[in-house]
Design a protein around this nucleic acid. Structure first.
Lengths: 196, 196
DNA sequence: CCTACCGATCGGTAGG
DNA sequence: CCTACCGATCGGTAGG
């Protein structure tokens, strides 16, 4: 039966995705059951299927929303008028900012994209690969401009992205160091490490 | 353990742990069933319980063997006769080496320790916290010696450990860059970034 | 959005 | 190391 997409079902769906994001973050995709999710929403598990096609669709929404967000920002950085290394710094700060302000979505996407079903998995990986290639090209331009020391762009991007992702450990246990100082120290170490 | 020893001459239990490490790495702890594991060994799932007490015991073995290994190396570094920043470099290179030569165990430990049952989980976390504290202290000493710039030791350790952990992405997709060059570039970026 | 229920799969046990 | 099984839980469906 064809169901008209009303404003009500849209907002309900958005609400479901939001709660799912929180649960996926807390317990992981596989360990979160549709019964867990339904319970948090105060309904029965079977009722979820009036709003979403299945568990897969929730993960899909989270991961592809993130991919779109990252791609849009890359576009911005590429067209900004500044030096190559300033572009790289913008990206570093953007990724740190995402870990601080959109932590749950980023975390779930980083960890649980593996559970996407084909052909979505291939699509996601292709987008991710393309993103890293654009990032690498910006690093390469900074190397050619003499603003970054002679390192392989892939190695630089890998070091940056994984260092930033490590903020998830700080999120789990914010010690005697503030978010601001962590961001400044990490930018300091990474940018100084890259510079010529 | 001697390299000439093949899987078949190892004790049955050791062999089970070895295959479990491979499967946990490939599919994750939760997604690996005792039936998967038994199938790889050519026996029935029920037969596994003649050698191990349960699925938990396999994860326990992997995680605590790694913890012991890391602690032993930290002991070595702390007692080595060299400068503070040389100690930090030794640790960076050790962690990179572990990602390259003991990849599956390290990866499983990093990702799946969350599935340890209490009281093992608390024990593991306490060991990890203590290890990071020792690491931080070495960084702090290098800062006090004027060999490392003014950054919060926690931020430095977080940046180092997470950057190194990122080698898992290289492992999944070794591109146009060799393990050796990746190690050298990462050490270059991190150490230059830390230095005064 | 509900009740009622399905087939599949899980970790693990009994008993040989 | 096996056969035979257990209770629990899963994602999802039928039909209202």
């Amino acid at each position: 039966m064809a169901k008209a997409v009303t404003e009500k079902t849209l907002s309900r769906r958005t609400q479901i995705v939001s709660v799912a994001t929180r649960l996926f973050h807390e317990k992981g995709y596989n360990a979160t059951s549709m019964r867990n999710l339904a319970e948090q929403l105060g309904i029965e598990a079977a009722s979820l299927y009036n709003h979403i096609s299945g568990k897969d669709a929730l993960l899909q929404q989270i991961c592809f929303d993130m991919a779109t967000h990252y791609n849009a920002h890359m576009e911005e950085v590429e067209t900004a008028s500044c030096t190559a290394i300033e572009r790289v710094e913008k990206l570093v700060r953007f990724h740190i900012g995402m870990m601080l302000t959109h932590f749950e979505e980023v975390y779930v996407t980083n960890r649980d994209w593996k559970h996407l079903k084909e052909p979505l998995l291939a699509n996601f990986l292709q987008q991710r690969k393309a993103y890293e290639k654009r990032f690498s090209r910006l690093v390469e331009q900074a190397v050619l401009a003499g603003e970054i020391q002679a390192v392989h762009p892939h190695a630089a991007v890998l070091t940056i992205l994984s260092a930033v992702r490590g903020i998830e450990f700080w999120q789990r246990n914010p010690r005697n160091i503030s978010a601001e100082q962590l961001e400044e120290d990490m930018v300091k170490i990474l940018l100084k490490g890259l510079r010529k």
